[in-house]
Design a protein around this nucleic acid. Sequence first.
DNA 1: ATGAGAATTAGACACAGTCCAATCCCGGCG
DNA 2: CGCCGGGATTGGACTGTGTCTAATTCTCAT
Lengths: 141, 141
Amino acid sequence: MGYRHYSRDNLADVLRAHGINPTHQRIEIAHALYSRQEHLSADRVLALVNERHPETSRATVYNTLKLFVEKRLIREVIVDPSRVFYDPNTSAHYHIYDVETGRLTDIDAADVRIEGLPALPTGMVTEGMDIIIRVRRAQDL
Amino acid sequence: MGYRHYSRDNLADVLRAHGINPTHQRIEIAHALYSRQEHLSADRVLALVNERHPETSRATVYNTLKLFVEKRLIREVIVDPSRVFYDPNTSAHYHIYDVETGRLTDIDAADVRIEGLPALPTGMVTEGMDIIIRVRRAQDL
DNA sequence: ATGAGAATTAGACACAGTCCAATCCCGGCG
DNA sequence: CGCCGGGATTGGACTGTGTCTAATTCTCAT
């Protein structure tokens, strides 16, 4: 959390802090997500990681992303039926989704106030809340 | 909107009112969605429609669901990375999603008040807003 | 009846994501 | 220092949703 610059050393510490064994591949995957603060698809992560020397397998990327989500290192963003995005920003926030370009933008949750949500059925707990505002360029019907 | 009971005749009128040519298949698909007021996946719609006599093709089900969404007869609900749900309820509302069972429940939007959302970038218009509350049974874990 | 355009169809295809058995790697221990 | 065991990684086959296409069928106005 306190890191400004995500060197691979720092990232190893971050992984350990989340109870994750920091392997080469995991560090590279974390690096892909944290160094550019973007929303990436699994496919894109795979491509970015493999721009560097070693070939990392698709299975590992998927395994690792799932592990990171489980350990709350990143978040899944489900807005596009064709692929999941992964978001290195784990602080409370929502999203604006451009349905034409596929671009995702963050909305800080601190600014947003929501009232009147019903109580959850008993025995249920909230895992999380997603708000997605779908937008498009005006005027093109 | 004024229909209590969704007979196939009524549905033909509903389709026409939305500028959709009411074919047999389209009426059956509309019936599947409207008769049971549930959130159905395309696959489930296909199965339901084919419980009746004629075999309706997968392509038609997908084409038709897309058409219905375009014509605002139904809504897409994107909560599960593996498949899209279709929702015959087009009035403003949000969703509770049980991540374990996959069950979707409606939240009436009339009761919910949201403040502090940022202005949209200029030239952009809202297509729609989704709110999804992900829940699970307590105490496991 | 007929012909044009719309709707439907089967089946091939695309693609994200999963699964699995074999291999690799690494840290601990003798 | 070398061995061992279990976790991590790998390639490749596989699955399931959804798309595409070319051919056929339907509809309906003339």
